[in-house]
Simulated assay, not measured.
Amino acid sequence: MRDVAALAGVSIKTVSRVVNREGGVTPDVVARVENAVAQLGYRHNLAASNLRRVNSRSAMIGALLQDVSNSFSASLLRSLEDAARDRDVVIIASSLDEEADRERELVEGLVRRRVDGLLLMPATDRQDYLSDELRSGLPVVFVDRRPNGIDADSVTIDNALGAQLAVEHLLAQGHRRIAMLGDLPTIQTASARASGFRAALAKAGIPEEAGLVEVSLRSSEDAFAAAGRLLDSAEPPTALFAARNSLAIGALRLLHQRGASRRIALVGFDDFPLADIVDPPLTVIRQDVNAIGAAVARRLFARIDGDDSVPEHIVLTPKLVPRGSGEIRP
């Protein structure tokens, strides 16, 4: 606040009034203070009492995931909580729902509350808006998606390889008309999985058909409708690749409703509870969420403890888990 006051040519009390949205300050002075705030990257501390700690830490970590109700995000959050519990650290979690503005607002709120570190599954295309925070020493670890515009630690899996494993598995069963149910192409993971899908077909010498690819599916209901369109087409697929767990759930419901669950093969990306007890049990590409969570916690707490080494980008390998649905022959 002293720095902001000096740059703006006002008193510390005036800075306090502006950042706390109090009255009694003329518009031109407000503008000078806000310009100084922006220039210096100042963030008002809503938890100033925490700075009385000897280590000046808040014992809080922010975790911004796409959807905490999704089984992947929920399992990841639990893994981080287990690591944080040993350090008496509280996790503040929220869902981004692929909304870039929501991400920036939540990051701003967490930074103002002086969290000790930030776990981010970004919705934004670029994250260079975090440059000031990184320069000031805020530990940030990206999960599921690598950062763009800045360099920071990340923990991801090889999404393209996972999709390729799924399609190659269906090809090995004799399928040649394989359809894909995918998320928004603008999402980093969805784009990589679509690339893996295409690469597997190209490797087998099978041309990709636009009519067998349904993307921009955001929910199980979207996948249900898309799978119905595919099965109702003039030349329906004999196998489906669902590139997200919620999309696999929608496809499962459609196949069961149509009585086609033992006629149309299905492989999903990401495991989820009860996937092994549906009929037939769902074949999936599994991410080791515990390993991902452990790697994230290890990097984040290392940064909080003072590790200033170059950013590390950890890429884990997914695994095909055959259970029955992906082994149905055409």
Results as ranks from 00 to 15, higher is better:
212 L>N: 01
239 A>C: 01
262 R>H: 15
4 V>R: 02
217 L>D: 04
112 R>N: 10
203 K>C: 03
20 N>T: 14
131 S>L: 04
232 D>L: 05
43 R>I: 03
81 E>I: 09
226 A>S: 07
162 G>P: 08
181 L>Q: 04
157 I>W: 06
293 G>F: 05
31 A>W: 05
319 K>E: 14
23 G>N: 08
196 G>F: 00
196 G>D: 03
295 A>W: 06
121 M>K: 11
121 M>N: 14
155 V>C: 11
40 L>V: 11
125 D>Y: 06
304 I>P: 12
12 I>P: 06
258 R>M: 11
52 R>C: 06
86 D>H: 14
81 E>F: 08
156 T>K: 06
232 D>T: 02
30 V>P: 03
92 I>A: 14
18 V>N: 04
116 D>E: 13
7 L>W: 09
162 G>C: 09
186 T>M: 10
231 L>M: 13
312 E>Q: 14
100 A>V: 09
175 H>L: 02
81 E>P: 07
298 R>Q: 15
204 A>Q: 02
328 I>E: 00
195 S>E: 12
275 A>E: 04
267 V>K: 01
84 A>E: 05
8 A>I: 10
57 R>G: 10
143 V>E: 01
49 S>T: 14
319 K>F: 03
254 L>D: 07
142 F>R: 03
254 L>R: 14
17 R>K: 15
316 L>N: 11
325 S>K: 05
68 V>D: 01
97 D>P: 07
143 V>T: 10
168 E>W: 00
221 E>W: 08
192 A>P: 01
274 L>A: 13
2 R>L: 13
225 A>N: 10
50 N>M: 15
48 A>V: 15
244 R>V: 02
203 K>T: 06
217 L>P: 00
330 P>W: 00
182 G>H: 01
119 L>H: 07
163 A>W: 07
15 V>A: 10
122 P>A: 03
153 D>H: 15
32 R>M: 07
16 S>H: 13
268 G>A: 10
203 K>H: 08
78 R>F: 04
22 E>P: 07
90 V>M: 13
103 E>D: 03
111 V>K: 00
27 P>W: 04
300 L>K: 13
